[in-house]
């Protein structure tokens, strides 16, 4: 018996973007981090790009595929690392969706933030999501909150960096069809 899938053009695009995100994610995980939990987050650039260009449906798929498949490749599936990564990815997408809500009306559409604004939002909420899960499930110690300001500072800086990268990326492939 032969299973037959019909795949759409959109599926191909998502597979391509997800593959890119997974590659970046895995390369990133090979580098040591100055502070546990602080990573450049370049993989999020792909999610952000997808969100801005193709909307949250696609971004959600890319983001989840990245988290799940990278963890399978790295052997961290269902481990604490995976849970942290998943919670960060989900919370950052949710906050992107919420921020975009008021701009969905056509009259406001042109006022919506650029990649930079979205990236800062995504980065802060990504960090917060990871932090809350880490605190609730793994280190339920109130002392952990002493570290929160430092983590958020890093999140803002890295958010700005990844926002600029995303914007440049969008400018570069403005005309091309993916």
């Amino acid at each position: 018996m032969k299973l037959h899938f019909t795949t759409t053009h959109q599926d191909h695009r998502i597979a391509l973007l997800a593959a890119l995100a997974i590659t970046i994610h895995i390369i990133e995980s090979a580098f040591p981090s100055p502070l546990p939990g602080v990573k450049p987050g370049l993989a999020n650039v792909v999610t952000l790009f997808t969100f801005i260009r193709y909307g949250w449906h696609s971004a959600l798929q890319v983001s989840l595929l990245r988290v799940i498949i990278s963890s399978l490749v790295l052997g961290t599936f269902l481990s604490p690392t995976f849970l942290l990564s998943l919670s960060g990815a989900l919370l950052s997408l949710v906050s992107l969706i919420v921020i975009q809500l008021p701009f969905n009306q056509s009259s406001f559409h042109r006022h919506q933030p650029s990649a930079l604004g979205y990236a800062v939002i995504a980065s802060i909420s990504h960090m917060s999501g990871q932090f809350l899960v880490a605190w609730y499930f793994f280190i339920p110690h109130p002392g952990l909150f002493q570290l929160l300001p430092i983590f958020i500072t890093f999140a803002v800086i890295l958010g700005i960096v990844s926002g600029i990268i995303t914007q440049l990326l969008i400018n570069q492939i403005q005309q091309r069809k993916l």
């Binding site: 899938f5 599926d11 998502i14 798929q61 595929l65 269902l78 849970l83 609730y136 499930f137």
Partner: peptide
Amino acid sequence: MSIKILLLSCICLLITACQPD
């Protein structure tokens, strides 16, 4: 479409698995 179904079932599984008491 199949990707969505796969992902959705994954999420459901995870959410029920790590729901705190």
